[in-house]
Design a protein around this nucleic acid. Structure first.
Length: 270
DNA sequence: TCGATCCTGTAG
DNA sequence: CTACAGGATCGA
């Protein structure tokens, strides 16, 4: 279920706890987790290598290993990844495990089994993400970049924001929250947003995501905690029929691209 | 550009 | 029981 903020916090935890450790063995509980690669291939590629770094790109977790190999993990809808102590039982829903030499293990827990683990030459990681848009919290993401990407697009703004080729990391929740903060109706064609609203959208994306990271970070007490940002703090997501926190109008839910969109019909204009 | 699809758990 | 779930890809 994680979007950029949740993946960011999960990545930070791993980046704090596992670099320097060596993978003693690996285990694929669910063969579909590595598709299109085979479990045997993935296990063979990672065994015996040292974890040098853990980082994030869009909603992917990357583990850079010694010997020029990188593990790419995508949590999709229900994935979670964290370290368990030596001797701890594998959690229910475990799909993939990296056992470390010191006895700890990194587990991929994923009830819905849509998550993915694949291995790639580190040198080729760049091209893996060649179609993915800019990281919204980095300097490369500017109003101008946003404007260029939005130009002439007829896609509704909400659907447009979910497309990872435009901006990396937004999902159904934070796309809705971002549009509310920017006071843009989710049905507005992206190409019709003028400089003023694009500037608001740019700023909203950054501030909403940064706040969500801070919120998610705050709820994690131990590694296995899922850094679920506080949905009670959402302005629109999941609040159909409830009053808008800014104006009191009732929040509406519509379907866009077969997914729910929540918005305030009063605050958010076309 | 859209719907179907990969899966399973849970809410209504 | 059915509807739906915070993702992404694939084929029509």
């Amino acid at each position: 279920m994680p979007e950029l903020p949740e993946v960011e916090v999960i990545t930070r935890m791993l980046a704090r706890d596992v670099p320097g450790s060596t993978i003693a063995r690996a285990y694929v509980e669910r063969p579909s987790a590595t598709r299109p690669q085979t479990p045997e291939f993935v296990v063979e590629q990672v065994t015996g290598r040292q974890i040098e770094a853990v980082w994030r790109r869009a909603k992917n977790i990357l583990l850079t290993l010694s010997g020029g190999i990188t593990i790419r993990v995508h949590l999709r809808m229900t994935g979670h990844m964290y370290v368990i102590p030596d001797g701890a039982n594998l959690p229910r829903g475990t799909r993939f495990v990296l056992y470390l030499e010191d006895g700890r293990a990194i587990v991929l827990e994923d009830m819905r089994t849509l998550g993915k683990v694949t291995v790639h030459p580190t040198a080729s990681i760049g091209e893996l993400f060649s179609d993915v848009g800019p990281e919204p919290l980095h300097g490369e993401f500017t109003p101008a970049v946003l404007a260029t990407a939005a130009a002439r697009s007829k896609q509704p703004a909400k659907v447009w924001l979910l497309d990872q080729r435009r901006v990396a990391g937004l999902g159904n929740i934070w796309a809705a929250e971002t549009l509310h903060r920017a006071r843009i109706d989710p049905r507005t064609p992206a190409g019709r947003l003028g400089p003023k609203r694009l500037a608001r959208l740019h700023e909203s994306i950054r501030s909403v995501l940064q706040q969500a990271i801070d919120g998610a970070q705050a709820v994690v007490q131990q590694p296995s905690d899922f850094p679920e940002a506080d949905l009670l703090g959402c302005q629109v997501y999941g609040r159909e029929g409830e009053p808008c926190r800014s104006c009191g109008h009732l929040i509406r839910r519509i379907a866009q691209a077969a997914r729910s969109t929540y918005y305030c019909p009063n605050c958010q204009k076309r």
